[in-house]
Each structure stands twice: as structure tokens, then as C-alpha cells.
Computed example of a mutant assay.
Amino acid sequence: MNEPPTGAQPERPYHHGHLRAELLQLAWNSIELEGIEGLSLRALARQVGVSHGASARHFKDRQALLDALAVTGFEQLSGALERIFQSALPFETRFRDAALAYIEFAVNHPKLLRLMYAAHLHPEASDRLKELACATLRNMTGAIALAQEAGEVRVGEAKELALIAFANFHGVAKLASGDLLQGMPWQDAAHLSIQFTWQGLAPRKEQS
């Protein structure tokens, strides 16, 4: 982070109501580019042009900022998945769309996704963060249970089926974001994984 030029005006108190959102956006951008190692609340405050005390009114320390970033990430991801699962499309279509949306989020925001899952394990993680960290699996479990009632998913423990499905596409997401697919486009790996997973969820056909 560049130091302010000599003769720059001293940091000023922030006088409008959008400081929290602006700090979050700058922190998000910083993590996307550089990861969390160099993230500094004081540096962000300088970048906005406010005192550290002004930023501390919104985030008491760096960990509080990381918690808020993780919450923001989970809210975006969970909101997108909920909209897909709540649509009126057949469950197979919703399942495929949700899995692809999750993998795409991971590919586009790999550093943020790592932060999200690490931050919710921190001893000072907020209740909101802990709740959101479980939302993907919880929503998928509920969607699978409803699809079972409609005959769109095979019988079985809905939570177990959801856990295995989540493990499959989260695994592809981790491989893709870590550049570990050995040249295979992430979209191809995602579709193959989703197809394989769906074969395990699809209703069993009657044996003739």
C-alpha cells in the first residue's frame, strides 16, 4: 500500500453514512487481488481518507472486518442458491444450476471462499457467520427432502445425500480454484461432476 504523499492532508473524520460499505468493498477488492495476508484496517482507513478511530466504530479490529467479509460472501452465495432452489423448475434443473453457480462462485472468488470457510471457525466468529456457513448444506438438504416427496430424488437420508452432493461439487470447486485440473476447463469438470452426482440422486428405475 502506497504511503500518502508528503504534505497530504491529515486523515479526516468520515461524515457520511457509507463508511462501513466502502471499507468492506475495498477489503473485498484487496483480498481478491492479494489475499488476506496484507489486509490492514488502518491501511483501508487511510485509503478512504478517514481516521483509524472512524473505521474502528464499524470494525473493532481486523478479525471483525474478516468476519464481516465472510458474512457478505456467504450472503451473496446463499442468496443466489436460494433463488435457484426456490424456482418452479424441475429439481434436476435446479440442482444442476445450483451446483454450477457454487463452483462458478468459487472459481471467480477463490481467496474470498477460503476466507469464508476459515473465518467461521475462528473463536470470535459471529453467530450470523456460523449460521450462514451452514446455509448451503441446509438449503440443499431441504430441497432434496422436498424433491424426494415429489419423486424427483431417490429414497434415502436427505442430509446424507446432500452432504455427498456438496462434497462432490465443493471438491471440484477447490480443484478448479487451485488450478489443479491439469488443463481441463473448469466448466467441463463441473458438468462431469454434476452429472456423476445427479446419477446418484436420480430416482431408481423399476427393474423389469
Rank of each mutant, 00 (worst) to 15 (best):
V172H: 01
A143K: 12
A150Y: 06
G151D: 09
F169D: 02
A158Y: 07
A173N: 04
A167G: 14
D179W: 07
K159Q: 09
A165K: 02
V155I: 08
G156Q: 04
G156T: 07
F169N: 13
L161M: 07
I144D: 07
E149M: 06
D179Q: 06
G151S: 13
I164Q: 14
A147M: 02
A150S: 13
L163D: 12
V155A: 12
A162C: 00
A150V: 08
D179P: 03
A173M: 00
A173F: 15
E149F: 05
H170R: 13
L180V: 05
A158K: 01
L175V: 02
A147I: 10
V172T: 15
K174M: 14
G156W: 03
K174D: 13
L161W: 02
L180H: 06
R154E: 14
A150F: 11
G156R: 08
E152A: 14
A158T: 04
F169L: 00
Q148Y: 12
A173H: 05
Q148N: 04
L175M: 09
L161N: 08
A167N: 10
E157N: 11
E152Y: 10
Q182L: 12
L163Q: 09
A145F: 10
S177P: 05
Q182R: 11
Q182H: 13
A147F: 02
D179E: 13
G178R: 05
V153D: 04
K159S: 15
K159P: 00
E157T: 09
V153L: 09
A158D: 06
L180R: 14
R154N: 04
G151E: 07
V153P: 06
V153A: 03
I144H: 10
G151Y: 06
I144Y: 00
F166I: 04
L163F: 11
E149D: 12
A147V: 01
Q182G: 06
V155C: 08
F169T: 10
V172L: 05
K174S: 09
N168I: 14
A176R: 05
L180G: 05
A165I: 09
G178M: 02
L161Y: 06
L175I: 11
A145P: 02
H170D: 11
E149K: 12
A145I: 01
K159A: 15
G171T: 03
G151V: 08
L163V: 10
F169I: 05
E157C: 05
E149R: 15
G171L: 08
